[in-house]
Nucleic acid binder design. Structure first.
Length: 238
DNA sequence: AATAGAGCCAACCGCCACTAA
DNA sequence: GTTAGTGGCGGTTGGCTCTAT
């Protein structure tokens, strides 16, 4: 049987012995000419298969642990910005492979991102019909409290580390508008309403997540927390 | 304990771009 | 300009594991 024969090449999961042999061969010949490397290694694997195994599993400096919150924010934001350019996104996450990021996106983030997009789309549509010109200087942001972030993080894809989360009084936006009801839907879907927020809602104060007082640092801060892409379409409309 | 369904992930497939002859 | 070889990328699949019933 020769390498040309169908059935010569092995398929399926790699064995430890194959991994060792590939690692040794790459060490000798370098990460190039994969077809030649596959042949000289004696492995019954295609060059393509060897390259993939090396790139996604054996290569040094790969991270094998869970995706961190920070990495998740980066993936969410870059996917939104660039689309499914997994290889490009992977370059921004040292130690992660495009395949890993793609799989993580499909199994953990896709639904979340779609939900966010759907909310934003609805909000934008409502705002177009609404009385409100959503310029920041028209919004009165009274800081009314703080709360735990776990579920909120999940929804907004933001990190609470080192930040002071605050909520904004949306009374200034008026009441009964499509925009307000959409925001209300959004907030109630988040499942992170603390007692404090409920308390304020009892007094008719709609809550809106923000990260500091509106001012020169606001854009920078929201970018830092990975929410600028999400919320800037709202703040900048009009 | 057995089974079905869902979720996850490593590996494969097909296409495209690039390069050398 | 054409063709063959090669590598890279994104989509898809198969099988394993986990969970619910």
């Amino acid at each position: 049987m020769s390498i040309q024969d169908p059935g010569f090449l092995r398929r399926g999961p790699w064995l430890d012995e194959e991994d060792n042999r590939l690692t040794t061969t790459v060490g000798e010949l370098g990460e190039k000419h994969w077809d030649a490397l596959a042949k000289s290694s004696g492995l019954r694997r295609s060059g393509k298969s060897c390259r993939l195994r090396w790139k996604n599993y054996l290569r040094p400096n790969l991270k094998h642990g869970d995706i961190t919150h920070e990495e998740e924010h980066t993936i969410l934001n870059l996917q939104k910005q660039w689309g499914n350019k997994w290889s490009r996104i992977a370059k921004r996450l040292p130690g992660r492979t495009d395949n890993e990021i793609k799989n993580y996106w499909r199994s953990h983030l896709k639904g979340k991102a779609e939900a966010q997009q759907e909310c934003l789309k609805g909000i934008e549509e409502d705002m177009k019909q609404d009385f409100m010109t959503p310029k920041c200087d028209r919004i009165s942001f009274d800081h009314v409290g703080e709360s735990s972030m776990s579920d909120k993080e999940d929804f907004f894809g933001i990190s609470s580390s080192g930040t002071t989360e605050q909520y904004c009084d949306m009374n200034a936006l008026g009441s009964g508008s499509p925009y307000e009801s959409r925001m209300s839907d959004l907030i109630s879907s988040c499942c992170w309403q603390s007692d404090e927020i409920k308390h304020h809602e009892e007094y008719g104060m709609g809550m809106f997540p923000c990260f500091s007082e509106i001012g020169s640092s606001f854009e920078e801060e929201s970018k830092t927390h990975g929410v600028w892409d999400l919320w800037s379409p709202i703040w900048e409309l009009g």
